[in-house]
Structures are given as structure tokens and as C-alpha cells.
């Protein structure tokens, strides 16, 4: 079986639509800077759950949770998620408070390619905590139309 040809014929179109505009690691760094300013971003307290191997980049489950007492005095105020290679670096911003009880937010995202995802939590005490994940996106076989 000629795998290379089979895949070349069927898998090529997935990435194209996102190719026009591209966020870059630099664009992601700039977007992060806009959120955190000159504050120090520390690694830790944040867990970023993504499947390590993504079977289809169109719908990728993502769950961010942050260790926090979520009290009036000390809670997560926002969770920001960024990516490197989609057209724009910002994925979402969730606004939280003590009424949430737990700092955990889930959604599903599009990923056009293998890349790095970064989640940053902003606390009510003015701290920034982060986690990142490198994901591998495989291309689906047997697509709608050959190119």
C-alpha cells in the first residue's frame, strides 16, 4: 500500500485554510505581554489538560484548572489561553470569582497544526501562574474531497 500517496492526496487540505494569517511564537509572546504587563509569570498551580495526540484539530477538548481557595480574599480572577499557530494568538479569556468555588474551565478549540498552548491564571492578589502544553495534531485520513 502506498501510504505516502494516499495521505498526500487526502490530508493536504486541512492546514490550508488557516495558513493565510498565522500567529507566531512572537505574536503569542506579545499577546501575553499585553495581559501580564511587566509582572512575573510563574510556572505552576495551573493544569492544562489536552489530549497529547490529537486525532482531529477541528475540535480539541481543553480543560484548565487552577489551585486556588477561591475565597473573597484570594481567588483566580481570570484564565487566559493562548496558542502559537492559529491565525490569532488569543483563544479565550474566562472571568472568575469567589462565586465559582472552583477555578476550572473547559471548552473545545481548533488547532490547525502541532504547536504550543499556554494557559495563564491571574489571581486577585495580582499574581500570574502558568502552564503550557505541546500538542501533536494528526491529519485525518479519507477526507471529503481530494485536492
Amino acid at each position: 500500500m502506498d501510504r505516502r500517496r494516499f495521505l498526500a492526496g487526502t490530508a493536504a487540505i486541512v492546514v490550508l485554510p488557516l495558513d493565510r494569517a498565522r500567529a507566531t511564537p512572537e505574536a503569542m509572546a506579545a499577546a501575553i505581554k499585553k495581559v501580564v504587563g511587566d509582572a512575573v509569570v510563574r510556572e505552576g498551580r495551573v493544569t492544562l489538560d489536552l489530549p497529547p495526540l490529537i486525532e482531529n484539530g477541528n475540535t480539541v477538548p481543553l480543560l484548565v484548572s487552577v489551585e486556588s481557595p477561591m475565597t473573597e480574599a484570594d481567588h483566580v480572577r481570570a484564565i487566559h489561553v493562548f496558542n502559537e499557530k492559529n491565525p490569532q494568538p488569543n483563544v479565550f479569556v474566562a472571568r472568575l470569582g469567589p462565586r465559582n468555588g472552583r477555578a476550572m474551565v473547559g471548552t473545545r478549540i481548533k488547532l490547525g497544526d502541532s504547536q504550543k498552548i499556554v494557559a495563564i491564571a491571574e489571581t486577585s492578589t495580582g499574581q500570574f501562574w502558568s502552564a503550557s502544553a505541546d500538542v501533536i495534531v494528526t491529519l485525518a485520513a479519507c477526507l471529503e474531497e481530494s485536492t
Partner: peptide
């Protein structure tokens, strides 16, 4: 097949929500 597991192709789940189709 380049990262994708070739299934046995059983019609157990149809109609399906295929992520490729969204």
C-alpha cells in the same frame, strides 16, 4: 496510517458527528 489508527470500519455509530466534518 500516518498517526491515524485504521479502524475495522463497523457501522456501529451512524449517523456520526465527525470532527473532520464538524
Amino acid at each position: 496510517l500516518a498517526g491515524v489508527t485504521i479502524p475495522e470500519a463497523h457501522p456501529t455509530a451512524y449517523p456520526i458527528y465527525r470532527l473532520e466534518w464538524q
